[in-house]
Design a protein around this nucleic acid. Structure first.
Lengths: 215, 215, 215, 215
DNA sequence: AATGAATGAGCCTTCATTCAT
DNA sequence: GATGAATGAAGGCTCATTCAT
């Protein structure tokens, strides 16, 4: 602002700046209510640059989705890969997730909280990235079963557990925002505490009954 | 079209018809992308009626939020109230929740999947209804602790468990949509199976450790 | 302007007013340079009405094309139909044409002077209306041959004559604008004078040679 | 792209390349719809070069008009000049015209098919070049009269004939595009056949009458 | 109770044009 | 001689909202 001379920034850098700004605005307002004007202003450039580099509002949103999905998945895989027991791998993955969201809250909102589907391309990309994350988690869940049990776990059950886990983690994301001091490690531990035993129950096909035995 | 006499419908009925239509459209498109035109058409009336009865797009949305939040809470309370053990009350509450969502998917989407907050009034109303549901669940969670333990449960832990539970239930809502035949009872049972034991762990302040004992 | 109350005009009337204004603007500026803003202002309404009634700039242009092509063709056919000799029919048709253009210069410009092809739909509609007029003229030209000669006239020659005739008439449209007092009747007579004999020459396949016989 | 050394081309050559590209684009799209971007790309250079050499979109268009009007006029004069009888001069001029258009269709489109007048400078230049061509033709037409008759030909009549002739020739340009094999010579001959006699009629002030004598 | 007609404001997008290198 | 980076301005289109009947 104080230096009025037009900044001359190489294209790849500018593109990232624009995507950074877009993620903030898309997260705050949602896809439809977000205006390219606001994104451009936050990025410190004029609107035509956005169109020159990212093609359209849709293209811009897709670029955000792709970049952040990639980042999150990479972080998740890098964390969950090395450990040996499925239990430790899940724990590491969750920690990576909460760490990522703690640092990139807006990215997670953009990736996971788009309620409507503005265009086929966006619908597809959202589906793609969500499926990739689910697949990653399902992989860990399955690995756990196969190790401990035999082959008996039905497809459905692993999926059920995955949805439960991802939903819980997503919701804890809000809890985290309410408790800024809380380190991701503690959240991860508590979540493991809460679901680890139960996971086994479900995957083993146990049927919950009331303590008194009444169904 | 020209021959159908303009329907004369008493105001309260018309209002409900408009809200019904609005919920469908808001759920499908999201608040911003929803157009009053589409809502009026789906309700089978002209636009000025919408404004006459509900005042504005915002007023219309608020009416949707209020009516559906009320419905859901009522259903939840009615189910969770009578039973005696906290465990059974939670189970009944979850069943009521899944039953409600199975029958009113759009309502849940409107209540819980608004990614952005278009106006202070809406923000407030959303917060109010979400808080009410959370409070209901937290109540059950606390009741459980107090019965079994003593007063030792920290505020945070109950809230943590609540967020986990609500997030899981919300996410299972999607799983439910993927498995249309699945009865809400089975979903409820599996979810209880998965979280009931873990809840106790967390509320008792247990610290999860790796199987091998490494923290 | 002096009466500020919003005019309430029934839809069919407004549509014609909008098309009237559009023809003037499209003629003056060409399709691309014409702005919907200017059209709306000339029609004395706001822009959204244009879109409500005619759908888009393209739809508006198509409406202009259809209405004016219809008018011109109707006038042409009504004039050229009744007379008995082809010669008189052609004369009557040309008179109708010049009369139409004298009264609706802008329409002719819109119908015939669009240099570029902005969209497939417009290209198609322009082709359709131009072809219809050409067909009308070609019909008269052919009728003339068949009456006087035998069947020997090649397809190409009738078409050649038609293009010549139409091009001449179109260009005389400009001449007419330069000589405002000139009645359409005189223009028609002079044009008949100029082409009637030659038409026969071409249709009979005569080959022109220099007076001195040098090719 | 990165490896091709930037071409160093002397200014006059580059200018012609740019004008070549511009004519193609202006012909295809019309003045307004043509974009400087597309012209620069087709010319194989960057946009600032266009502005450096031709100053503005308007300047670019004017340069096109001037160059092509000059070319056409030169060809016309060179052809029509030498012959001795007006008849042969007209024939030679028409042949030159059709030959030019056969080879430079885009140029003729740019020169003669601009439906709107974007700026005073362009309006003036277009008028100038059209007038120059008309003057050339009118010259031939007058020469013919003066030779055969005497001074009696009214100004108007020569102009009328000129407009007819030019309009016919322009329209036959489209016919030519529809019949790619047709040599310009045949078109010229047929056009002469069609108008030569009629021209005399008009210039002599004859009044066309119906065969049966009814005016 | 109900609606056809109308609009101000805002958003996505593009284009001619310039600046700094 | 040549270009990548950047923008002011304007145009097409839509939407929430209101007026007159």
């Amino acid at each position: 602002m104080s230096d009025i001379r037009r900044q001359r920034v190489p294209r790849p850098v500018r593109e990232q700046q624009i995507i950074d700004a877009a993620i903030r605005v898309f997260a705050r307002r949602g896809y439809h209510a977000a205006s390219v004007d606001e994104i451009a202003e936050l990025a410190g450039i004029s609107k035509p640059m956005v169109y020159l580099y990212l093609d359209s509002k849709e293209g811009l949103f897709l670029a955000c989705l792709r970049r952040e999905a990639e980042r999150l998945l990479t972080a998740f895989r890098a964390a969950a890969g090395p450990a040996h027991s499925p239990e430790l791998r899940l724990r590491a993955g969750l920690l990576a997730f909460f760490t990522f969201v703690a640092e990139h809250r807006d990215s997670w909102v953009v990736l996971h909280r788009q309620s409507s589907e503005p265009s086929p391309a966006i619908t597809a990309e959202l589906a793609r990235s969500r499926r990739a994350l689910l697949a990653e988690v399902t992989g860990l869940v399955r690995a756990d079963i196969e190790e401990s049990d035999g082959p008996a776990c039905p497809e459905d059950d692993a999926e059920f557990v995955t949805y439960t886990l991802v939903g819980a983690a997503d919701s804890l994301t809000d809890w985290m925002a309410l408790h800024p001091g809380e380190p991701p490690e503690r959240i991860t531990l508590r979540l493991m505490n809460m679901v680890w035993v139960g996971m086994r129950n479900v995957l083993d096909g146990e049927v919950w009954t009331t303590p008194s035995g009444t169904p």
